[in-house]
Amino acid sequence: MPVPVGEIYGLINQEARGEGSVIAALEAVQSRYRYLPPEALLLASERFGLPLAQVYAVATFYNAFSLKPKGKHCLQVCLGTACHVRGSPRILERLETRLGLRAGGTTRDRRFTLETVNCLGACALGPIVVADGEYSGQMTVPKAETLVKRLLRAEAEVTHD
């Protein structure tokens, strides 16, 4: 798919409000495309008059930015302290095994991305897994298993159709 450079440049221009807004501009692109296409960095560097090397440093420093496209489904496991003491590492491990992924990775077929986050601020429900924006609380290894199975099954159906 060709990268819609015009649209990206439009987003960047929209956010370009004064000094320092390069991060906001990259955020706008990231939230629209769920990653930063390389073109976006060059356009931002041009728009803000910053060296490309500096924009690249910013894009690789902050966790919110991803330079690789994400999978169709995104699973986030909270590894905040509250979730940790309630056993989230084991849930993460199970998801890693099931999806054949390491945290932070995307499957080859670009169907799944597995990420970790540090506290979603809903610690009462920990451990928490967010699947495509939907929160599941009080996770256990068996519940995680069910969740993955459901997603995998849904995906398998899509492929068959």
């Binding site: 819609p4 450079v5 015009g6 649209e7 990206i8 440049y9 439009g10 221009n13 390389p38 073109e39 060059l42 356009l43 041009e46 330079l67 690789k68 995307t106 080859r108 670009r110």
Partner: peptide, 28 residues
Amino acid sequence: QTCSELDLEPHFVAAPEALLAAAREGTG
């Protein structure tokens, strides 16, 4: 992993001007 090309290798590095022109045109 998908295309087995070098990751992140953008094609425009040699000719950023072309990219900018396309971007400007796209936004008018």
